[in-house]
């Protein structure tokens, strides 16, 4: 009998802490599959953020460093500069990366730090029970925008990939999604390429992954996937913003 599907070696045999229907688990699996396929688990150090994925140091088999809220790119910089032959990735959410950590991500990118950032954008603060994020779309109801996000009070959502792609130091910038199989396959390809960019010492790579939060969106899992397609894609268009033709 042939094994057609198994847990990636880079993923530990522990239960995840995510809610049913949340796509963080899928993103973690894709990262782990890339570590396996590129055979880099043994030299990889992951940086855990603050938010729903704060505890992902328990999920990955590689060495892990837990960072303060928003500081993962600075911590990743320190780790990578000490051992440049290690592979260093940071996993960040939208509040972590685009609000409190905006300075750290912009400057890690503009320095061209040879690290990979996996940025899960689900347009809401999940861990703290559903407040407005910098990526919350107009009209979206959250605990701190109970009447919907209104530009006159709350301003506009930030498009991280578009912003970072203006920086010369950013080498590979791509936005992908988890709302169906086709897009998950594309997402995995982008994550793998981001790691390859790092392995080729080409500089800063980031993959923004549109992700669900059924709990804080007040939707069931399938409605949540539909919301990505119908409401988020018009605001956060998928595609490569930088490094599309880079051969690695």
């Amino acid at each position: 009998m042939a094994i057609v599907m198994k847990r990636p070696h880079a993923l530990r045999d522990v239960p995840t802490t995510f809610c049913p229907g949340c796509t963080h688990g899928i993103i973690h699996r894709m990262i782990a599959e890339c570590l396996d396929e590129l055979d880099i688990e043994g030299k990889t150090i992951g940086i855990s953020p603050v938010g729903c994925t704060y505890g992902n140091y328990e999920f990955f088999n590689c060495d892990m460093v837990q960072a303060a809220h928003g500081r993962a790119p600075a911590v990743a910089t320190g780790v990578k500069r000490v051992n440049p032959d290690n592979v260093v990735f940071a996993y960040q959410g939208d509040g972590d990366l685009a609000a409190i950590g905006m300075a750290e991500i912009v400057h890690a990118a503009t320095r061209g730090e040879n690290i990979t950032v996996i940025f899960a954008n689900n347009t809401v603060y999940g861990m703290t029970s559903g407040q407005m994020a910098p990526t919350t779309i107009l009209g979206q109801v959250t605990q701190t925008t109970p009447f919907g996000r209104k530009p006159e009070f709350h301003g506009f959502p930030i498009r991280v990939c578009e912003l970072l792609s203006t920086l010369d130091g950013a080498t590979f910038v791509e936005r992908v999604s988890t709302h169906n199989i086709k897009n998950i396959i594309n997402a995995k390809k982008a994550i793998k390429k981001a790691f390859k960019v790092q392995l080729a010492k080409k500089g800063f790579s980031i993959v923004e992954v549109l992700s669900t939060c059924p709990t804080n969106w007040g939707l069931n899992p399938s409605e949540s996937l539909k919301r990505i397609e119908e409401e988020l894609l018009p605001v956060f268009p998928l595609g490569n913003f930088k490094g599309k033709d880079l051969e690695v």
């Binding site: 460093v65 960072a67 500081r71 911590v75 320190g78 500069r81 750290e104 320095r111």
Partner: peptide, 26 residues
């Protein structure tokens, strides 16, 4: 050695956190 002029004191101390995590004198 490595010298980085960080974007802020906050970033600098977190780079210290990272380099120390990797076992370096920082």
């Amino acid at each position: 050695g490595t010298f980085i002029q960080a974007e802020s004191e906050v970033a600098a101390i977190n780079m210290v956190y990272g380099a120390a995590s990797a076992g370096a004198r920082v």
